[in-house]
């Protein structure tokens, strides 16, 4: 069993959802995660707040801070989750259930977590 990270991206994180929409979306997200957790395949995860995001970068040998993740990177990270799966295909199946994919232009990136000892 390997661990995979599901990276949830929103096309536009600056769009503000109504509280009702948020609530529906939260419930769907919880049901999605609950289904994975019920199979004992959930490791952990977090949602990320869109407000006040920053990117620290280095330009011409100077460390600068860019306000908001909405600069160079079009798609905004909305959260992530780590799952256990036998293969990337199984992890992709989990990813397909994500409510994030209801939004046009949104995506879920699936990446295997590197072993600490560098064996893979």
């Amino acid at each position: 069993m390997e661990e995979f990270m599901l990276i949830l991206r929103h096309q536009d994180g600056s769009k503000i959802a109504s509280p009702e929409q948020m609530q529906v979306w939260m419930k769907q997200t919880m049901d999605w995660i609950g289904s994975i957790a019920a199979q004992n395949k959930y490791v952990g995860g977090n949602g990320l707040l869109f407000n006040g995001a920053n990117v620290v970068t280095r330009k011409k040998d100077k460390i600068t801070v860019i306000n908001g993740p909405f600069g160079d990177i079009k798609e905004t990270l909305g959260g992530y989750m780590i799952v256990k799966a036998d293969s990337i295909e199984e992890a992709i199946e989990f990813a397909k259930g994500s409510p994030v994919l209801q939004g046009e232009g949104n995506s879920v990136e699936v990446r295997q977590i590197a072993h600490r000892d560098g064996t893979r």
Binding site: I7, I88, S98, G105, S107, V110, R111, Q112, I113, A114
Partner: peptide, 25 residues
């Protein structure tokens, strides 16, 4: 964690692409 540098991206309507690098440099 550190992530492996290959992966897949899933988009609405089950569109799956290889690698995480398509649009994000």
């Amino acid at each position: 964690n550190r992530l492996e540098n290959t992966g897949k991206v899933i988009r609405p309507n089950n569109v799956i692409t290889n690698g995480p690098f398509t649009e994000i440099k």
